[in-house]
Design a protein around this nucleic acid. Structure first.
Length: 468
RNA sequence: GGAGAGGUGGCGGAGUGGUUGAACGCGCCGGUCUCGAAAACCGGUAUGCCCUUCGGGGCAUCGGGGGUUCGAAUCCCCCCCUCUCCGCCA
């Protein structure tokens, strides 16, 4: 949610922000609706004030007259009755006016809040302007010793890389056929060492973020109410990317939605709260299943573990004071944690500064982290992939956009005791099975077996190899 | 699924038709006392929107919506949510 007052004062900033994000939103309509709403409210307030004045003087008079009326007779009685009726009529007339205005105001309000929810957070000025992920800008790369994605896999390793799909098939560690039988396209079932490796990564990542970096472990509901989806900024824009649990047709009051990330539960946990400044920053981490419909992605990345409907993810979230420098610092820190994790897994990666067109409605700034995946990218003459970076992490900085929607505030000395919306940030720690792609492909050996990364061995019962 | 109880300010908890935006307690802030602190005592302490000559003023808000009434936290209707017991169940 953006600040309506700020929009009123500087509508161009929001026009420009939406334009840069390639999101269409009618700012003028908001200004008109806002103007109308305020005019109506103003009228309503004045009439109400008048009504209250009347009611204060008319009440006791009516009481007095009613007393006299009991004793009165004939003309006197008729006169008193008329007077009482007059006294009663005035506020009644005002009430009708108020009700008419109320209806009008409610309409304007509803229309306004609906459009307001679609106004994206303007991107930070330093975010490069661009149309889509194509225009994202590489910030830096990191390579483990003995491997550089700039040179071919075979040159460096002495054999041709197999894709994770080939490796999986040979090792029998993912059952796509039966996954599809059970749950439809983009479904899978991890089996044996596939499931073990998946769990190992998640447990490693979870311990990494909670034990090593002090984030508080929390579990999250993954079936949530709509307020949580709106509050965290995923709705209305992402509604068709989300699975709907239709409970209304069964007589329940509300439908529920499957979350696409643990971020929803972690953030929504604190909605409608006023935190004491001393509690901040809140550093939270969870591991949860994530569900994504992948609507509009038909035909893209259909094979393998890259784009699937359900996966598990360790997620980190920070809720901090409304301080630009502080939240920027947390953004860096959260990215640093992921870099440390990927380096410990010795996976080549790069950081991308996402351009405005790739940000999504809620972000002011976003850094993607991509791991090197030998099986992706353009094919050569022999049908061999050249390898390509593939997105595995995404670090978002949102200022108070999300907390405004969630009505998540804090107060303390620095706010002068007044409640102020918090800032929030989120970043992947590890999402699996997607992260298994670079792990399997980078750790494969000439004989088709896969070495277990050193960091994961404690989580694999000390095993060093999968297969063979 | 069946039966019942309840939703009031940051929290606890009064309040069943008339200056009640709301007693009282806790918490918090300021002051007195003290070398300092605690205790005690005194005072203050909701949010949102709008207007403002920046002193302040107006309106709304007691789960949500509608109704009765000159007037509703209080009465009536509908809805939502939470809790307890029973049933089922990992």
């Amino acid at each position: 949610m953006i600040d309506l007052k700020a929009l009123r004062e500087d509508p161009d900033r929001y026009r420009e922000g939406a334009r840069k994000k390639r999101i269409s939103v009618d700012i003028d309509r908001i200004l008109v609706l806002d103007e109308r709403r305020r005019a109506i409210q103003h009228q309503q307030d004045e009439i109400r004030a008048e009504q209250r004045r009347l009611e204060k003087e008319a009440g006791p008079r009516i009481g007095g007259l009613m007393g006299k009326l009991k004793a009165a007779q004939g003309e006197e009685k008729a006169r008193l009755e008329t007077e009482v009726a007059e006294l009663r009529a005035k506020p009644a007339a005002l009430k009708e006016k108020i009700q008419a205005l109320e209806a009008e105001g409610a309409e304007a309000n509803a229309a306004l809040s609906e459009v307001l929810l679609t106004v994206p957070q303007p991107p930070d000025s330093e975010v490069p302007v661009g149309a889509s992920a194509e225009d994202n800008i590489e910030v830096r790369r990191w390579n483990p010793p003995h491997f550089d994605p700039a040179r071919s896999f075979s040159e460096q390793r002495g054999f041709e890389a197999r894709s994770h799909e080939e490796l999986i098939k040979a090792l029998g560690i993912v059952d796509f056929e039966r996954g599809v039988k059970v749950a439809g396209s983009r479904s899978y079932m991890l089996v044996g060492d596939g499931m073990r490796l998946h769990n190992a990564v998640l447990r490693y990542a979870f311990d990494f973020i909670t034990e090593k970096h002090g984030f508080t472990p929390v579990s999250v509901p993954v079936v949530v109410r709509e307020e949580c989806m709106i509050g965290t900024g995923f709705f209305p824009a992402g509604k068709d990317q989300t699975y709907l649990v239709d409970e209304q047709s069964r007589g329940s009051a509300h439908d529920l939605y499957l979350t696409g990330t643990g971020e929803v539960g972690l953030m929504a946990r604190h909605m409608e709260e006023i935190l004491d400044e001393s509690m901040l920053p809140l550093k939270l981490a969870t591991v949860s299943p994530c569900f994504r419909r992948e609507a509009g992605a038909a035909g893209r990345d259909t094979a393998g573990l890259y784009r699937i409907h359900q996966f598990d993810k360790v997620e980190q979230v920070v809720i901090c004071r409304a301080d630009e420098a502080e939240s920027k610092q947390w953004h860096k820190a959260m990215i640093g944690i992921v870099e440390e994790l990927l380096q410990s897994l010795e996976l080549p990666y790069r950081l991308l500064q996402c351009c405005t067109g790739d940000l999504g409605p809620k972000n002011a700034d976003m850094i993607d982290i991509e791991c090197w995946m030998p099986s992706r990218g353009a094919l050569d003459g022999q049908g061999r992939a050249s390898g390509e970076y593939g997105e595995t992490h995404s670090a978002s900085r949102l200022y108070d956009f999300q907390c405004r929607r969630l009505n998540l505030r804090y107060k303390g000395e620095s706010t002068g005791g007044k409640p102020v919306f918090c800032h929030s940030l989120n970043n992947t720690v590890a999402a699996s099975p997607r992260i298994l792609i670079p792990i399997l492909e980078m750790y494969q050996r000439a004989d088709g077996t896969v070495e277990v990364p050193r960091a994961l061995r404690p989580y694999m019962g000390g095993r060093e190899v999968i297969g063979g």
